[in-house]
Structure formats: C-alpha cells, structure tokens
Design a protein around this nucleic acid. Structure first.
Lengths: 223, 223
DNA sequence: ACCTGAACACCGTTCAAGT
DNA sequence: ACCTGAACACCGTTCAAGT
C-alpha cells in the first residue's frame, strides 16, 4: 500500500524497495506492461532512474517482485476452519481475482522464477486435497491439475475482461462474442455454435468454480 | 518450413509474409522472446528492416501471426475415427507439445487476440465432449475447463523444461527441485514435502493426460 | 507494388561522480 | 550507504526516397 502524500511535504519516506514495488504495481495496473519503465517510475517517485536501480538491479527482478507482492495477498484470507472444498474455492478465487485485478500477473506466472509464489498456492491446495481424503497416489496429480487449471482460467479471464472491445459493459461484450459464434460456419464450428447461448448468460466466477468442482469430483470418483 | 538456401543463390524467393513469419518463429525458438527483432529479422532475410514492416505492420501483428502458425499444426493430426477420449488426448497433447517446442506460445496465448486459434481448439474438444455423451448443460463448462487446463499446464511445462537450471538432463533437474521440496519447512510446507518423491519420478505427459482424465471423469460423474 | 535506409523517440543498463 | 545524471547500445516505428 503506497501512501499518497503528494502535497505539502515531499519524499519524507526514504526510497525503499517496498515503495518502488508498490508504485511499479500501480504503473502496471494503470498503464499496462509497457507502461512500467524505470524512467516513469523515477518521475512518480521524484528521483532519478539510476537511484531506482540501486534498490532493484534490473527489470526482470522488478517484475518478479511485483508479481510476488500482488499475488501474496490472495493467500492471506485462508480460513483454517473452512471445510476443504470451500477452502479450495477460496484460494482459487483469490488467485482468480488477483489476476483479474492485475492482468499482467497472468503473463508473468507463465515464466521461469515462479518458484515461491506458485509453491505457496500448491501447498494450500494440496492440504485441502489431503483433507478431502483423496488417495495418496492421486494427490500430486490432482493438486497439479487444480493449479494448472487456476492459472489457465485466470489468465484467460483477465485477457477477456480487459480485451480491446471491453469498453462497454460486460453483457454487451459477451453478446458481441456470442453473436460472432452464432455466425460461424455451421459445419466447421458446429459445437461452438450450440454453446453460444450459454456463453452469453454465463457467470465468470461461477463457471470458474464449476471447473474446479469438475476436477474435485473426478478426483474423488477415481479412488 | 523455411528453406535454408543460404549458399550459392541468394534471395531467389521474394520477401513474403509467410517467409517472414517462418523466420520469426526460428528466431523466437532459438533466441527467446527478446531475440525477435526487426533488425535481426532483416539480417537473416538479407534485407532492410523497413522492408519487413511493409509486409507486417508492427511487432504485435508479427507475434500474433507466429503464434497462429506455430499452433495451427497441432490441430492437423486430428483423426476423425478415433474414440472421443483418445481424440481429446490427441488434441491436448498436440497443444502441449506445440507449447513445449515453442515456449513463447505460452505467454502469447494469455493475451488478447487469441481468437481464431483458441476457438479451433475449443471446437475440436467440444465435439468430443459431445460425443462422450456429456449432458448438454455441462458441455460448455467442461470444454472451457479442459481448454483452460491445457493452456495452464502447457505453459507451466514449457517454463520448467527450459528453466535456467534445465541445462542438465531432465532427471537431474527434477531431482534438484525434489530435493529443494524435501528441504522446505516441515510445518509451512507439510503437503509439498510429502509429494516430493512423486515429483521426482513423474512423467510430464502422462501426468498431463491424467489431469485431462480427471476433468473427463468429473464431467461424466456429475450427470 | 515493393524495398531502402536515415531519423526519431524511447528504452534498459552501466558507471563515474557526488553526498 | 544512497543517489544523480550522462552515456551507450539497442529497439519499434515513421517516412521520404528510390526502383
């Protein structure tokens, strides 16, 4: 949380790594991935761009830190007393919402040093999979599948919700896509046409959780 | 397929959009995402960088075309006579292998104009979901879940297989990660530690297909 | 129609110099 | 220890000029 403090006093805070990362997240959110620049950061922080690179060695490190910070909060709301399935839903929705709020996370989680952040999610989900009584042999596979699904679905949702056409309200956007689907070639896209109606009325988060439940059901059925 | 033809004759071909995209894919594969440059392209094609931008307006269009071309081939091997579950496995593995061969696809599918390519995969999978006899209401949800899972799992696999430490052979890499997992805090990472052994011996593609089957089982069980 | 290459604005990174 | 800003190499994009 970066404090505003822009008016009277200026730069009471020292330039910390934490402040830099916070402003970086603000920039990524408002300007997109190309908007994050050492020079833009320097302007917002009222300093030189060289100063920033004393705290953060290079841009990839900055992106890594921003991703970790923005994702970490999704994990905090874990209620240790919730039943397993609900706990999984909570973690999944936390990641889903984090990616939705910070679309750039999606592209970032799909590259090398995802280590600690991803591992935290993996651990949280795995515990609940255990608590559900999944057979030991299936636990690794199921937890991996859930994680992959969450990342994939979250990323897709983020691109949809901030797509070029997403200026208007959501219902209008979905209607436009559904109309496009309905107009596709009836032989080449026979299936897609039949589900255009469902696309139009579906709820993103409910649909997302339904996918989670599909995996959980499959996991319990195959014991 | 770009023909080599580097020796005697030079630039017998005209500069076509197709050739540009092919060389772009080569560059992305060999040099990574940062290696794709209009100037590097110009050098390989023995022309000026301005010439390239006559055929391809800008870089995002070039990336879009490269992604579409590299992904399209995954769809070609569809065997119309295969049983549904096998057909789904084939499509899924096709995408999985395409992302593995071209890791940059992973990051690309997670952003705006994925339209046509993704829709093709969606259609192929959806038909088989229908053929499996899934209830109509579940078809949209199941097909979406499969697609999201495939994208997520493919992306993660690609980053792992070309990770910084992936110089040595695969077994060594997995062993290193497994050892790391086993050394984690026993309270904070209780679950992760218990599956470290499975990580060490698991087969990527088999594990990937097991995740697909989890979704399919869940889909059939919840009718 | 297709290609060339200079020019421009911008970027990440390095680094000698300051406090 | 922390900050400044010049300098460098590189990039995407534009565009007047050629064939």
């Amino acid at each position: 949380m970066a404090k505003p403090m822009r008016s009277a006093e200026r730069r009471v805070d020292a330039l910390t790594r934490e402040r830099i990362v916070d402003v970086a997240i603000e920039l990524l959110d408002s300007e997109g991935e190309n908007g994050l620049t050492f020079r833009a950061l320097a302007t917002r922080l009222e300093t030189g761009h060289g100063a920033i690179q004393w705290h953060v060695a290079n841009k990839s490190e900055l992106l890594k830190a921003a991703t970790a910070t923005a994702t970490a909060r999704a994990m905090d709301e874990a209620d240790p007393d919730a039943p397993p399935r609900e706990a999984i839903h909570a973690v999944a929705l936390g990641v889903f919402d984090a990616i939705d709020a910070h679309p750039w996370i999606g592209g970032q989680l799909a590259r090398p040093p995802w280590q600690s952040t991803m591992l935290q999610i993996f651990e949280h989900i795995g515990r609940q999979v255990q608590a559900l009584g999944a057979p030991v042999i299936a636990q690794f596979t199921s937890t991996s599948a859930l994680l992959h699904y969450i990342i994939g679905a979250g990323g897709q949702n983020a691109t949809n919700s901030r797509s070029p056409a997403a200026l208007g309200d959501r219902r209008h956007v979905l209607d436009t896509i559904a109309r496009h689907w309905e107009g596709l070639d009836s032989k080449e896209y026979a299936f897609t046409r039949t589900v255009a109606g469902q696309l139009r009325v579906h709820d993103d988060r409910a649909e997302f959780l339904a996918g989670i439940d599909l995996i959980l059901t499959g996991m319990m059925a195959s014991r």
